[in-house]
Design a protein around this nucleic acid. Sequence first.
DNA 1: GCAAAAGTGTTATCATTACACCCATGG
DNA 2: CCATGGGTGTAATGATAACACTTTTGC
Lengths: 250, 250
Amino acid sequence: MENLRYHYKYPHPNVTTDCVIFGFDGNKLNVLLVERGLEPYKGRWAFPGGFLNMDESAEAGALRELQEETGLKGAYIRQFHTFSDPNRDPRERILSVAYYALVRLQEVKGGDDAVKAEWFSLDNVPPLAFDHDEMLQMALKEMRKQIHFEPIGFELLPKKFTIKSLQQLYEAILNVKFDRRNFYNKMIHLGLLDQVNHDDENDVKEINFKFGPLEIDASFTRKPRRDALLYTFNAKKYEEMKQKGFKLEF
Amino acid sequence: MENLRYHYKYPHPNVTTDCVIFGFDGNKLNVLLVERGLEPYKGRWAFPGGFLNMDESAEAGALRELQEETGLKGAYIRQFHTFSDPNRDPRERILSVAYYALVRLQEVKGGDDAVKAEWFSLDNVPPLAFDHDEMLQMALKEMRKQIHFEPIGFELLPKKFTIKSLQQLYEAILNVKFDRRNFYNKMIHLGLLDQVNHDDENDVKEINFKFGPLEIDASFTRKPRRDALLYTFNAKKYEEMKQKGFKLEF
DNA sequence: GCAAAAGTGTTATCATTACACCCATGG
DNA sequence: CCATGGGTGTAATGATAACACTTTTGC
């Protein structure tokens, strides 16, 4: 009992942040899961997360966890819900402020070797610990909603990408199919894309993960007969358009 | 020190829920504020809220607070953000899980007399306590976003309403003007409205508040030459349409 | 009968959808 | 030279925006 050093007049819940990390493998949307090494739910997969420090905001906590798991600093994260069921954690009353993150698989180096982490494609996600199944569904829903208003998809692609891969990404996220020509026309006319040449040596290249059995779909790397043009996302143009008010829909 | 009865191995933050309560007076969007009777920020206006009980979810806590302040049970509420800056409350580390509520002004009876509560139109909101200014802005932004996808506006109107008042509501929320005829056409063709007759005695009537100096704009109650048709929102039809997938935009 | 607000339709414009042809390249 | 995927345009369709006339009713 000696180590119960923190005293309060009223009971306090504890608070964690959890992070649903989305990555795109060129074909499907993936999430990064870690295997729990401790009870409760030992051996089950869950989203990376952990207790909030007393001197950090929830966002800072989520970014810290994210860096610990993926090595990424300053990734794109977004708070989408706080889970607060009194019984969601069997240990004590714990709220979780949940974020989703959009990261480039290509840049994920892997973190701590202490935790076993693995990418799972969305149609292959195992049963998760705590209320993380619900967390995933809500993250997906919110992310799909957001992509109607903001070009967040670009966070998931390499800096330089083809329109085809952009289309595959949108199709994977929204679970729909677009006509190749209409998608191209819309994208070009939006003016958010800058064409770039791909003389640069380190463009798409091989993707080398330390994480589990992720197989990059061949269609992402197979050499087509004709090289596709590469584009980048013009964030400045986007900001301009946002000032004037516009809708970005798919 | 004897009353510090709750002991933890690690420090715990405290958690509140706060509720941005929106109401429509027929002309402008209003929020319900309470005057703080205690330090910190004594005398400043703030959103109703309070500490989360250990056995209730954040949503249950927000509904409880809402009922205490407005007398409304089971109102429409929606979680939109958790505020977590470590210094947002000078007393101790406190997170706030924030909700917005959409209520019918007509049905708000007022709660506890202990607290001074008042409606403020959006262009007349005083400086608020804590980070509640930011809270208001975010609530507005999220609510405006949501109204593009779901007909939440109906929560703010009486059960029976005219298309004109529905238009005024949308204009107040989105801060735009619509062509009266186009708005009418769109609404009618959407099929979400059922026409009802207004032989019922207790329809719109007088609005009688116990709250502050709210003045209902005369245009809401002034008798026009010709009675406008009354409509109700057809929730069943809405659910049907949602199944089939549709977009509700304005 | 006229002023004020309500109900409603028609056309022009713009965005979305469906669809097809030519080009570049590696084998 | 041909198979494969890439770049791009055009016509039909549907949605949104602009706009005006008629009806009701209290005075």
